[in-house]
Structure formats: C-alpha cells, structure tokens
Write a protein that binds this DNA or RNA. Structure first.
Length: 279
DNA sequence: ACCCAGGCGATTG
DNA sequence: CAATCGCATGGG
C-alpha cells in the first residue's frame, strides 16, 4: 500500500533513521527500508511529500506518529537554539527528528547497546529479529516479542552475539511479560518514567533516558553517554560534573525540548572534528 | 592493542 | 554514605 503524506516542515530521513535512535533502517537506492511494528515500510521524500510503501495494516496515522510529524520542528529548533554550538548543529542537521518507536523494541534495543557501538548494535539486533522475530515478507521479521526473548533463553540470546547483555535482556523481557507495565509509562512524568525504567535489570539512567525520549514521548529526557558527557563538560559546565548535574543543567538550559538539543549535539560531536568545535 | 549510545556488584575512602 | 573499580563481551 502506498501512502503519501504532505510535509510542511523539515524532515531528513538520513539524520533521523541512520544514526543511533533506531537500528533497523537500511538505505536501498532512494528508499529507506525498515520495520515499523509489524509492517515492512519503505520511505522516501519527493519534493514536499513523504512517500511510504508499506505491507500489512499500517496506515498514514502510524507513519505520521512514528516520525512525530506533529512536532513543530521549526519552533522547537528556535527554542533550543541557545548558543553557537547548537546553532551549528542545527545548520548541519536540520530535519533530524526524534522518532516514536514501540517502547518494547526501544527498551530491548538500548539494553543491547550497553558498552557497544552503533555498528555492532545493528548487527546484533538484526540477528535477534532474524532468529526470534515473526516473519513478515522475504527476509524481514518483526522485532521479537518479550515472550520470544524469554523462550529463547539466555543461551539462545548469546548465540545472537549479546554477550553479557543476554541475561539483562532475558530478565527484562521476563518482567515485561509478567508484571512490568511498560506501556503505561507514557502517562507518567519524565522523571517518574525514567526512575521506574531503571528498576529493570540492565537499565540505568542512560538506557532509561533513551527509552523515555525515543518511545515514551518525553522530549525533555536527556540521555548522557560518553560523547554527550564530554561536550557538556568541556563546552557548557566547564568543570568535572556528574551525570545528574549534566541532565539537570541541560533541562534548565535547553528547556522542555532538551531531548532534541541532545540529538543535535550528539550528531554534531560525533561528526565534526573536536578542534573545530572548541576552536 | 584500544575503543565503543553503560550497568552492576564489590571494594575503597 | 558516596565514589571508584573491574568485569561481562565481541567487532572494528
């Protein structure tokens, strides 16, 4: 099914889908191909239209929702544009949008991301889906359900290359299957949602913040990894700081769209040479 | 070798 | 009590 969505504001699929919010999108000629929920989706932009070619029952509403096209990006970028650094990032990456993933897929993905790198995370998740996800069409599979993860067992997960993360993912899946109400967290305040998430095994502040930002509609969540930590300390705080000090500063400095600032900065410090950032 | 979108439990101060 | 440390693992 082909869906056309008229877009009247910045949307850059490369910046949005390729670098670290989500790990399953691949570029094929002029399309981006990925899986949203249980549908294989191809996306491309022609002029001011987003073209989606999708299998299954997915409709315009979910595509719109996934790319958060309701976010007024121009307004958000104006609000977070507080200094030269963010301003440069916005110039380079305008059209990068926060996306709204399925919370379980997001949680599982970021448990897999612990002390790893984007390249490896993508490969691990690919193996997980291939082995444990329900087939959709050709070689595309849905993301494995918590039940499928539990059924695979720690040994089965290790065979996908999860290493020491296998037991975290297994235990988290078990709790989500049995008692942990992941999907109700969308109704909670940001800090409450994050603190509940960190009760899960393998979920610390960083992973919880990513889940809150990328799947639970918490646009003020500010994940601090080593890249963000370095740029925040050297450019903003200008002294040794804890993760809590950094997130607290970021919230007050960038405001309720701190998560957007986070993604633009993350993109920027990973792309631009350090000496260019700090002159 | 060294680094990587961190978390956890043990140890130290 | 908080801060620090070593470790789980595997690919580039």
């Amino acid at each position: 099914m082909i869906i056309e969505i008229r877009i009247n504001q910045p949307l850059n699929l490369k910046h949005t889908l390729e670098w670290g919010q989500v790990f399953r999108w691949r570029k094929a000629q002029d399309w981006y191909i990925g899986v949203i929920d249980r549908s294989v989706v191809k996306l491309k932009i022609i002029d001011n239209k987003l073209i989606a070619d999708a299998t299954g029952k997915i409709g315009e509403e979910r595509i719109h929702d996934y790319l958060r096209l309701d976010d007024d990006l121009n307004k958000i970028l104006t609000l977070i544009n507080k200094d030269k650094l963010v301003s440069s990032a916005i110039t380079l990456f305008k059209g990068l949008r926060i996306i709204r993933q399925d919370p379980w897929e997001c949680l599982a993905s970021f448990i897999c991301s612990i002390n790893s790198n984007i390249n490896r995370i993508s490969k691990t998740i690919e193996k997980l889906c291939m082995k444990l996800g329900d087939p959709i069409i050709s070689s595309y599979h849905a993301f494995p359900t918590p039940q499928a993860i539990v059924k695979a067992g720690i040994k089965g997960l290790r065979e996908c290359g999860l290493g020491f993360r296998a037991k975290y993912l297994f235990e988290a899946a078990k709790q989500v299957e049995e008692s942990f109400d992941l999907y109700s967290l969308v109704k909670e305040q940001t800090d409450a949602a994050i603190s509940k998430l960190t009760q899960l095994p393998g979920v610390g502040l960083k992973v919880a913040s990513c889940v809150a930002l990328f799947s639970l509609n918490k646009l003020d969540a500010f994940p601090v990894d080593r890249w963000i930590k370095r740029v925040m300390i050297t450019y903003y705080l200008r002294r040794e700081s804890t993760i809590r000090e950094i997130t607290s500063f970021a919230r007050s400095y960038f405001g309720k769209y701190a998560g957007y600032a986070n993604q633009y900065l993350f993109h920027y410090v990973r792309t631009v040479k350090p000496r260019k950032i700090f002159q």
